[in-house]
Write a protein that binds this DNA or RNA. Structure first.
Lengths: 229, 229
DNA sequence: TAGATTGTTAATCGATTAACAATC
DNA sequence: TAGATTGTTAATCGATTAACAATC
């Protein structure tokens, strides 16, 4: 650090084996560090202190240092954090650069919007295929992803070595789709169907996404402010 | 309660004035109760206990009772909760039925997908207009919402009495759009731009939505499971 | 009445913050 | 060296759970 040229600093990246379980609260904050570090990089800074970050992000400097230290000593006393180094570390932790491959089930409005966005690119996830039940769109290309038959789901997962499946189909079909995936090498499901999946202790990790929930908390806040005028 | 026919039970809905601040943790869970209660209603049940709900939702019964009690005594000892009554109360709390009106800035893929979904309907939010900067889509209809000129944003908010504005434009323009809204009667912003807005203590409530964040925590979990095989 | 289940208090657990010694 | 800022411990704060009296 200090432009990474001083040879003295030992970067103690805690080894996975001896790493104590990281708390859910910390994990949920990691993507936010990822985003803000990209912003800091975009601003052309090469170093950043927990105090600076804290001001940008509206959290305490203490929390930032505590959070980062769950994964290793990425900073340097008297200096702060080397932005690029820290960003690299956060990316490692979050699996950016693992080259995960994703398949989207459902080529409707939401599925299409997701695929066309820059979201996956930014996070190093490669969308390799979409599937749908509607015959008339099989073979079409959305963004630059081809739509295949839903029937071929398992073979497609095999062929493309799919790591992550994204569910954007009607909630009635969510469970059936998830069941099919249990027989594949798929490692994670990102579930937009609204039907919360619980695959118990299967090898598949599930992340249930409920976009509408934050609309409701917004409405709650608005309604609450109205009543105590 | 008890089919609501016994006259004895006093439903002590805590009055807003004397209601102590509800903790953020509780508020964030409310939409989930909303979703599960809809499910219970769909199943045709008329009563539900905290124990039953707890099994469905994978949380402790204690937490459910504690959460609901922040807002009033909605249950009845020995009986449980009347599903419809509880649902009504949760809806009230969350402002469903306040008839909030929303305007979407940005008629791109995401904006269009949101508008075409059933999300707003389900939550009693009425999308009254979209705006965009691209001349060629002005006047078009998406879902059943008309696209207007971005230039007319303030007038449209006034004319349609917009409560909530949804930002789905490029992040570079997020701040400028939010600034414009400060001069209107808009009460809340649902922000998908990726640029976190902080309007300080303005009268506008902001909810920053980062869909990609949960993709990253999914990747984190996958990467972590891979390393400790 | 007896049984069930809430509402609520007290105990536990986890997460955040403050403080400061270590050290670059 | 002096100044700055981390890494880390201890103190505080908040959230969850357990337990049970109240009561339908």
């Amino acid at each position: 650090m200090g432009e990474n040229s001083k040879k003295t600093k030992k970067v103690s990246v805690k080894s996975a084996a001896y790493m104590p379980e990281v708390s859910p609260a910390v994990i949920k904050r990691l993507p936010r560090y990822f985003r803000y570090l990209r912003e800091v990089i975009r601003q052309g800074k090469t170093r950043v202190s927990s105090a600076e970050l804290s001001k940008m992000m509206n959290v305490t400097a203490s929390q930032i240092r505590q959070d980062l230290n769950c994964f290793g000593g990425f900073g340097q006393q008297g200096y702060g954090y080397n932005v690029n180094f820290l960003y690299t570390k956060i990316c490692e932790i979050l699996g950016v650069g693992c080259g995960f491959r994703a398949l989207v089930i459902g080529a409707g409005n939401l599925g299409s919007a997701l695929v066309k966005s820059s979201m996956f690119d930014k996070r190093g996830v490669d969308v390799v295929a979409m599937v749908d039940v509607r015959e008339n769109i099989i073979g079409k290309t959305i963004g630059d992803v081809t739509v295949y038959k839903m029937d071929d789901l398992e073979e497609l997962c095999e062929k493309f070595e799919v790591d992550i499946v994204i569910l954007t189909l009607p909630k009635e079909n969510a469970t059936a789709a998830a069941q099919k995936l249990l027989n594949t090498k798929v490692k994670g499901i990102w579930n937009f169907t609204g039907k919360e999946l619980d695959l118990g202790d299967s090898h598949i990790v599930v992340e249930n996404e409920h976009i509408g929930d934050s609309l409701m908390t917004l409405c709650y806040e608005i309604a609450r402010r109205e009543e105590d005028l």
